[in-house]
Structures are given as structure tokens and as C-alpha cells.
Amino acid sequence: MDPYCLKKLNAERRARRAALLLTDLGDGRDRVIKEGDPVAGQLGELIGRAFLSGRSGVAEVDGRSFFLNVHLPPPRLVVIGAVHISQALAPMAKLAGYDVEIIDPRTAFATPERFSDVTLFAEWPQDVLKTRPFDAYTAVAVVTHDPKIDDQALEAALKAGCFYIGALGSRKTHGARVERLRALGFDDAGIARIHAPIGLDIGAASPSEIAVAVLAEVIGAFRARSLHTPLTLEKTA
């Protein structure tokens, strides 16, 4: 492996960006391909598919054998609101393999006692996002019921292309939210990406049940990602 390739690959992984190490098994040469980098031909299509599925493997192209090792960032769930639902959601999401972060500027809610085992920020979302921005591998669930807090996060999540965005609140609450987001310049297609009311419709009643519904919706969005994620591949015959 080329030391430069290793450094480049690790830099991408540290920055939570998807990258693929392509190794020619015949001559041992390798190169790092970032998600969205144009790669021509059949190899390009296979690389595009590997980014979508997250699956690494060997590919035979034009009589040559390549190994495609795809590195996707671990999915992350950021919950805006250190509420009762979040207390149930955080451990469940961790079990499902998600890195979990909770953000809530209300220090009465965001206490280590209530969230002993989770990365917790008792700060405003926009302050946390300066150093820990959302990305395409982040799910965002806003559950504070307070537009002052929720809207900042929703705006950032829409702009970052988060794979899941969910917002707690009744249809009426969401109607008012839609109007506010329109006023901020978001179009209907963008706003429609928000799952509201939040969570799969399983008739959830208690905070824990709502947490199950939200987590199931997050997982569904992540696994369906390959069905609607835009693919930018330069097609040359």
C-alpha cells in the first residue's frame, strides 16, 4: 500500500467522509477514491454501487482483478432535546450500532444524571454544530417542542443532507413549522424530507415506545439510503 494512500484514506475517515481504497490485485497498486469522484466505465459503476451498499469485495474488470474496500462513516444519531424520549432512545440507538449525541441548551434537562452514558451537550445546537457539523451519515431527531431550539437544528440538518430528519409534534405543530421553514427559504421538496410526526406509526404511547418508533424509522431511512441517494458517476462508454 502506498503510504500516501493510507494517509489520505485515514484523513477521509477521520473527517467522516466516505472513501474507497481501490487495489489492483495484479500489480498491488492502489488509489483512494472519494464518494462522488468520477471514475469511468464498468469499474466506476462498481465503485458507485460499493459506496451505496457499503459492501467491500473483489471485482473483475477487463481481465484485471481489483479489491474495492469501502469505508463508510459510522452512522450517528443526534437528538435535539434531552427529554424523556431521549433517555430511552439513546441506549436503544447505541445497541443498534449508532454513535449517539444529545444536544439541549436547557441545563435542567441536559444533566449527566439523566444521561450518564451518552455524549451530552448542554448548549445551543448552532454552537455545537460549529465544531461537530451534521453530515450525510447523521440522523437528526428534534424533540424539544421548542422552535427556538428545534428550528436551528432542522435548518442545519436540511442543509447538510442528513439521511434522516425527524421532528416531534402534532400535525398542527408541524404545519406551523413548515411555514417557518418556508420563510427561511426552504422549498417543499426539502421540507418534505422531514419525518413528522416523528417515528413509524405503531401507535406508540409511552416515551420508550416512541423511542422504538423513532429508532425504527432511522434504521429504515439508513437502509433505504441506496434507493434514493443521488449517484454522481461520470458515464463514459
Binding site: 493510507l6 484514506l9 485515514n10 475517515r13 477521520r14 473527517a15 467522516r16 462513516p73 459510522p74 450517528r76 454513535d99 455524549t119
Partner: peptide, 13 residues
């Protein structure tokens, strides 16, 4: 090392 998500035990790091 900016993210906690990248484990110290990561072989490539």
C-alpha cells in the same frame, strides 16, 4: 483524531 467514533484500536490508524 477529531472524532471519538474512530477507535484507537483501528488497524489503519
Amino acid at each position: 483524531m477529531t472524532q471519538q467514533t474512530t477507535s484507537e484500536l483501528d488497524p489503519l490508524l
